[in-house]
Simulated scan of single mutants.
Amino acid sequence: MTREVQITFDCADPGALAAFWAEALGYRIQAPPPGFETWEQALEAWGVPPERRNDASAVTDPEGSGARVFFQRVPEGKQVKNRVHLDLRAAPGLSGDERMKALEAEATRLIGHGATRLLRVEPEPPFVGGNIVMADPEGNEFCLD
């Protein structure tokens, strides 16, 4: 039996981090529940106080096949390197200079949305295709692969 998977990020600003990852993954902010045009309307109707309205957010695959990504506010900041990270497949099927050029273009695009470039790993055939290690706006590492 297969299981549905949700990826969860602990973070300081769920709304902002959800917006970043929606852009990075080509996802959308999860739609509000039926009967509400916006999340603000839903949270107001449910009596959620304004200071708690950014406690959580989520993004979903518009095609419905990818995992939901959930962001939850936690009081502590990131302490050390991630033990698990996402690899964004930004250059599938490409190799060599063409691959690295595509990865560089995606790195530049994501820097424009708040990411930080950490490291470029050069291709070393046959096993290492090359990648770029990045961090999201809250310092969570991910790779452009």
Rank of each mutant, 00 (worst) to 15 (best):
F9I: 04
Q6K: 13
N54K: 03
Q6S: 13
A31Y: 00
T8F: 10
Q6E: 15
V48P: 01
W21R: 02
Q6L: 12
V5R: 07
L17D: 00
Q6P: 02
M1W: 11
A22T: 08
E44S: 10
W21F: 08
E4Q: 14
A16E: 06
G15C: 09
E44G: 04
V48I: 14
A45C: 02
T38E: 03
P34I: 01
P14Q: 10
W21G: 02
A22C: 10
Q41V: 01
Y27E: 06
N54F: 03
P32C: 13
W39I: 02
P34A: 11
I29A: 13
L17I: 00
T2Y: 12
G15N: 12
R53E: 02
Q30S: 14
D10Q: 12
L43I: 01
Y27A: 09
P50K: 11
P49Q: 07
P49T: 10
G35E: 08
A18L: 03
I7Q: 10
V5F: 12
P33V: 04
G26S: 07
L25W: 00
T2K: 13
A19S: 09
A18D: 02
E51R: 12
Q41G: 12
A24L: 06
C11K: 03
G35Q: 06
W39D: 01
W46E: 09
E23W: 00
Q30C: 10
M1Q: 13
G47Q: 07
E37I: 01
A22E: 04
A45I: 00
D10T: 10
E44H: 06
A12V: 07
A16D: 06
E44K: 05
I7N: 09
E4A: 14
L17Q: 00
L25Y: 02
G15R: 15
P33Y: 04
A22Y: 07
D10L: 11
E4M: 13
W46R: 07
Q30L: 14
D10E: 15
T8Q: 15
E40W: 00
A19Y: 01
L43D: 00
P33R: 07
L25V: 04
W46I: 01
V48N: 00
E44L: 10
T8M: 14
Y27K: 05
L43V: 01
R53I: 05
N54A: 09
E4P: 09
L43Q: 13
P33H: 05
M1I: 10
T8L: 13
G47S: 09
G35I: 05
P32K: 11
P32R: 10
P14C: 04
L17H: 00
D13S: 12
E23C: 03
G15E: 11
V5G: 04
Q30H: 12
P33Q: 08
L25H: 01
A19C: 04
R53D: 03
G26K: 08
A42Y: 12
E44V: 10
P14M: 08
A12M: 11
L43M: 15
A31V: 03
I29F: 03
E37K: 08
I29V: 15
G47N: 06
L25E: 06
E51C: 06
A31T: 02
E40S: 08
A22M: 08
D10K: 10
Q41D: 14
V5W: 07
Y27N: 06
P49R: 09
E37T: 11
I7H: 10
T38Q: 03
E23R: 00
L25I: 02
A19E: 01
R28N: 11
E51A: 14
T2L: 14
T2R: 14
F36R: 03
R53P: 05
G35C: 10
F20Q: 01
